[in-house]
Design a protein around this nucleic acid. Structure first.
Length: 267
DNA sequence: AACAACTTCAACCGCCTTTCG
DNA sequence: CCGAAAGGCGGTTGAAGTTGT
């Protein structure tokens, strides 16, 4: 016998999450950590599928998420990574702390794609748009493109993209330069007076939270476990008391849009 | 003001890979 | 080792919001 089913479809709620459901999920995960998503709805008192809970947490409720549109540097990084990785959104998202694969995928489809087409660049192959490229990357509705970069390449352009995966890339955008060297990404902003840099190297951060969030461990392992006991909650991040816990959330979560939800938690 | 067309993005669906019994 | 379930991922959908007429 294998495992038990994820959730019986009977009585499972769908559609947008309510503030009440968000509270329950956040409360449960911050208290118990992420264990098995299948058990979360039952234990948290939610009539949702475990998958739905995981999605809601990773895409919307996680305290380390950034809010708002991707900035120019992030956008350029996404374009560059997409050229190398194709539609592997989770891999791309792993290089942009605080951004989710869903968010990047949406931004790509709604903004970047159009921008590239406007610039005469094929968003699939990242080659200049030509009749041949258009035939290659665009197909009638309902049909898959012959050489989407995320799939096995069937044209030369995609093969080059896959082959380029191990190469170093350096993109300069105005005063910002993005350097991608296999798994390491750094963003540097040239200041006219100080030449200050903002590398994404976790070692350069004194703050243990930032260091951890930017480390490969965190990026590769999204199932970061909170301690089960509230007594030693967040000790891994260098905080222990409830006051420090509040400070940690205040600094890591943009309270602008979800202020009510997080204000509730911090009470 | 009313409606249509367009845009955005949260959430779902279904497939694939990994893990477990 | 095998089969089944969990988890993860990318594609797609549709409701809500925005813009144009």
């Amino acid at each position: 016998m294998g495992r038990q089913p994820c959730c019986d479809k009977l009585g499972v709620k769908k559609g947008p999450w309510t503030a009440e459901e968000d509270k329950k999920l956040v409360n449960f995960i911050l208290t118990h950590g992420q264990c098995c998503w299948r058990a979360v709805p039952k234990l948290a008192g939610l009539r949702r599928c475990g998958k739905s809970c995981r999605l809601r947490w990773t895409n919307y409720l996680r305290p380390d998420l950034k809010r708002g549109l991707l900035n120019e540097a992030e956008e350029q990084l996404v374009i560059d990574l997409h050229a190398r990785l194709g539609n592997r959104w989770s891999k791309i998202a792993a290089k942009l702390p605080g951004r989710t694969d869903n968010e990047i995928k949406n931004h790509w489809n709604t903004h970047i794609k159009k921008k590239l087409i406007k610039m005469g660049i094929d968003p699939v192959t990242h080659e200049p748009l030509t009749d041949q490229n258009e035939k290659c990357s665009t197909t009638p509705q309902g049909q898959k493109p012959c050489c989407a970069a995320s799939q096995k390449p069937s044209c030369a352009a995609s093969q080059e993209i896959i082959a380029a995966e191990d190469q170093k890339v350096n993109v300069v955008l105005g005063t910002t330069s993005i350097n991608v060297d296999n798994s390491n990404v750094s963003i540097r902003t040239e200041n006219s007076s100080t030449d200050e840099s903002q590398p994404l190297d976790p070692k350069t951060y004194d703050d243990p939270l930032m260091s951890y969030l930017l480390s490969e461990n965190f990026l590769e392992d999204s199932s970061w476990n909170f301690p089960a006991s509230t007594a030693d909650n967040f000790s891994d991040f260098g905080v222990s008391s409830s006051g420090e816990r509040s400070a940690w959330f205040l600094s890591s979560k943009d309270l602008g849009e979800d202020g009510e939800l997080w204000a509730w938690f911090l009470e």
